[in-house]
Design a protein around this nucleic acid. Sequence first.
DNA 1: ATGTGC
Length: 480
Amino acid sequence: MGLKDNLLRLSDYVYVLSENTVKGQRVPVYFYLSDKLFEHLEEDAIRQAANAATLPGVEKAIYVMPDVHVGYGFPVGGVMGVNTDEGVISPGSIGYDINCGVRLIATHLSEERIKPIRQELMKEILSKVPAGVGSTGRLKLSKEQLKEVAIKGARWAVEHGFGLEEDLLHIESSGTLANADPDKVSNFAYERGSEELGTVGSGNHFVEVQTVDEIYDEQIAKRLGLGKGQITIMVHSGSRGFGHQVCVDYLKVAKDALEKYRIEIPDMQLACMPFKSKEGQDYFKAMNAAANYAFANRQILGFITADVIRRFLGISWEELGYRVIYDLAHNIGKIEKYTIDGKDKELLIHRKGATRAFPPYNPDVPPAYRDIGQPVLIPGDVGRYSFLLVGTHKSMEISFGSACHGAGRLMSRTKAKEYVKREGIEKVLEGLVVVARGKGTVMEEVPQAYKDVTEVVRVVHELGIAKLVARFKPLGTLKG
DNA sequence: ATGTGC
């Protein structure tokens, strides 16, 4: 008898773990899954979500997206809203990769032009765009310079020649989060971050050249300037060692503060501090600083990748038609307002492997997209489709304005490596163009190691928390 | 995710 047996199926895509199923559980936990994805649901992921439901100040419900898997303390794919007056902030429930996120860039190029030369083009991207664990970029920034990055985010990158002013109009929070304080970030984080700005990283992070492969909503796609056979660039990356160190530093602060604030938690990995406490505010300000680093990172990566393509083809920026469609986080904590039981409340929404999906006419949706809803970007894994959706009103009712973020692992990294060694890399990656400096990450990230992102996105669409607009097929992928 | 793993 595990927790999975306690899940109640409410409808085709909704399961609930009622409140008080586990000791101290304050709110129910909703799982958004198809029958197929329910089979993959791990007992430990349920346990982690239920544990989070015991945290002080947690409101309404914990929501778990269809791409759920076990994480550090809180499951990847989890959404938690905590009252900013009485509640806590939990670094582990935001994740080690603060502002891990996705950027989508449109071009005027056509699939016919790129497909025949994709192998050579990807080699060029490999030689110019740094990727991999510990990889360093073309920038080496002093602590003072990084402090500026931490305050300005994507704006810093634009001011230093990486992109256009108008790019900023098409990024979540304009690519600059206001509540950042660079003085709350440790010297070690500045050391680790000094040479990593403008680098991809490892794991499922990538830079990809894609083609628009399928349109689900003609009207919205047209508004976004997207049509079949059009070339796009997608960037999936985060705050690298800088954000990682912020998380490490404040997990320690949180553990040390548990006794001081008399917080009892069922799992040390959920170490947290009152949001309004000095420790909580320090972490929040450091987290926003790291999130700004990540916005700057994707701004640089997207722009230099576009520039490599432009130079490779020997064309002008005008002919390339570089245009940022959107950029947003899927590992972050944000202050948002919700009405719960008729009361207006301010919540700190923890999204860990979950993407904001705000509806049309929400003031946080950029003016350019106000009437169609906020773009939601779902990166595929190697060789798999990626997706563009838009947020809906329903997400505000049943998921704190959130949707999924990707696919989620099926095989462990070790298992994936064994599988690739058994089958052979050529057979596993049949027909895919994947470039990387080393083989290790590619072996760990083969498509077979992941759940099917198409199924994940289908659940989100059917449930109505985001609406499908377009699908993107990879022509070439740069991995770490 | 991560100057990757007890």
